[in-house]
Amino acid sequence: MTLRNTVTATATALVVGSFAIGASAESLRLGTEGAYPPFNFIESDGTITGFDVEIGLELCARIGAECEVVAQDWDGIIPGLLANKYDFIIASMFITEERKKQVDFSEPYYLAAMTHVVPKGSDITEFSNDALADKVIGAQAGTTQADFIEAMYPDADIRLYPTQDEVNLDMASGRIDMQVGDFLPMLDWTKKSDDGACCELSGEPITDPAFVGEGVGIALRQEDDDLRERLNAALKEIRADGTYKTINDKYFDVDVYTMK
């Protein structure tokens, strides 16, 4: 697998890689965010990588496609798909009924849960609206985590941010009292990063299907039935032959497909 990278820092959508598998291959564009480690992020040399990207590129190889990776800000990621900026999205997107009104999804490629994150030593131990009415709570805008805190904590001071990195920065700096994020990235941030050492996961994982949906899927335009089925077949193939596990184990200590 060879990545060729050309990054333009001022562009909203950055073309940052391609997967070379032959001149006659079908050309597709894979949309991702590029700001959500360890699932998708941009290395210091401009390479976009992460679990989402590696899975996506492997699926491209299995369906015989040459895939260009396009990074897009989260708040424009579904509009970008609908505007044909890319052909599918693999960016840790929860499959929800609301999103199904705009796009179709593949079968889940990993399971989904959210979590509360609080500073170490915090007195926050109860997660009701009454208990958190005077607290500042953060999440990334346009996400199911944002939907969750707005629905569950209407009396709190809600702060929404363009990227997860910005939520983490304010959390580490003490500008917010709690955040809600995806379980696996938050576990990774609190256990493996210097700034994340400020904080810890708290409470039970949030698995309400009203917010986390049916899992995490690849989003496609609703008319692209053939591409969806080809990606589903390729996903089954990489699960069966161990390729998925090899990629999974580079990033996680559990199988994120089963959360075991």
Rank of each mutant, 00 (worst) to 15 (best):
L201G: 08
G203R: 05
D249L: 12
A240L: 05
Q164Y: 14
D253S: 12
E229C: 01
V180Y: 12
D208I: 00
C198I: 12
D170M: 13
S173D: 14
S202L: 04
D226W: 05
K250N: 12
D249Q: 10
D170T: 08
G215I: 01
K192M: 05
P185Y: 15
R228P: 03
C198M: 12
Q164P: 00
L184T: 06
G174E: 08
R228I: 08
Q164F: 14
K245C: 01
L169P: 00
S202I: 02
K250V: 06
C198V: 12
A210V: 10
L231M: 10
R221M: 08
D253M: 07
Y251D: 05
N248V: 08
G242S: 07
E229G: 00
D225R: 04
N232R: 08
E214M: 05
F252H: 05
A197Y: 10
N168G: 01
D170G: 00
D182A: 14
D253H: 13
A197T: 04
D208M: 01
M171T: 07
L235C: 02
G242Q: 09
P162W: 10
L235Y: 02
E200Q: 14
N168Q: 13
Q164T: 08
T190D: 02
K236G: 11
P209H: 15
Y257A: 14
G181A: 09
L201K: 10
R221H: 04
V254W: 14
K236Y: 15
K245S: 13
V167A: 07
I218S: 04
D253A: 13
K250T: 08
K191P: 00
N248M: 09
E237K: 08
E223A: 14
E237N: 10
L201I: 06
D182F: 05
A233F: 05
L231A: 11
D255Y: 15
C198E: 11
K245T: 13
A233N: 08
N168I: 06
Y251F: 15
Q222Y: 02
A219M: 01
R239Y: 15
D177L: 11
T243F: 04
Q179Y: 15
W189Y: 15
I176R: 03
I206S: 09
N168W: 15
G174H: 11
A234F: 04
A219C: 01
D255S: 07
I176Y: 09
I206A: 11
Q222A: 13
A172K: 03
I206F: 15
I247F: 15
R228V: 12
L227Y: 04
D208R: 00
Y161V: 03
G242M: 12
T246A: 14
Q164K: 03
T207L: 01
D188G: 05
